[in-house]
Amino acid sequence: MTPFQRYLVTKTAWYLLAFVLAVAANFYLPRLIPGNPVDALVARMAAGGGAEGEALRRIYQLYISEFGLDRPLWEQFLVYLGNLARGDLGTSFSVFPAKVSDLIWRALPWTIALQLPAILLGWLIGNALGALAAYRGGWFDRGAFVTSLFVSSIPYYCLAIMLLYGLAVALPLFPAGGGYSYGRLPTFTWSFVLDALRHYWLPFLSLVLIFIGGQAVGMRSMAIYELNADYVNYARGLGIPDRRIVTYIFRNAMLPQVTGLALSIGSLVGGALITEIVFGYPGIGTLLFSAIRQNDYPLIQGVTLLIVIGILLANYLVDIAYGFIDPRIRAVQAGER
């Protein structure tokens, strides 16, 4: 086995272990709730007067067989795994009889549409700003650095709350929340897209500002580290112009930043749950929020599983990519980061 293959196999094994552990936690922890969650649910349904007699019994049976609650725990786990493999995340408690996977698929595009552009744009602007600050130094560096540090340190939901109040309530420039105007139905028409865009800017801004700040801080310290490297001094000593040396520094400082980008995209689903809650944006965060309030365990489990898969996959791909790039770079990265 070549060293690279060994690296590949070990990494894969560790990530598989992490995945199995996460799935097990996802399965087991909600079952620690005292009593049978289905009993509580059905009792609530009966009290609400929504379903009665035969219908209630059918719902009860559906949940019991779906969870395999009448069987031992290990068998329940196997049932759970089997369902997962078929992409079946179960039936929602709160929006009966909607499938959890359908609810998630409906919310996911909103989350991706909100986060992905924010991550990409924030990454581009942040890196340019950080590199410039490191290179220019002086007051520009000081101003950009401290502002970035401050902005990136604000918990993202705090910034969201302040922006919502500042730009939609105190100074009503933007609509105060939601993904689209109240009473509209999501369709692919111009007027709907324009309406959705109007609701888009404020949550987008709250995310992009944080990303810019965080990336700028990281890029600046990477670039300063590179600025002090021997090769910079040597290139200067041979009369290579500064603007050319800057491209060296930028490229070398970039590598860890690319990793950061991949990881941000991976943690996209769980990265800004509360932003959506603050703005009432119809994505995964809002879905999770209402699921938690209504004790909709299958839905909560579905969302947490999605978050785990995204993050594990991104981490795994980044690790494998490093193995491909170069064993030396891999060693350097492992040692320094």
């Binding site: 090769y231 200067r236 290579i240």
Partner: peptide, 24 residues
């Protein structure tokens, strides 16, 4: 002038291990 560097006088640095840009 900057062009003196490399043309009139050039440095052969200590510890050439890190003198070259690793990604070039």
């Amino acid at each position: 002038p900057v062009t003196w560097r490399g043309r009139l006088v050039a440095l052969l640095p200590q510890g050439a291990m890190n003198s070259l840009n690793p990604t070039l």
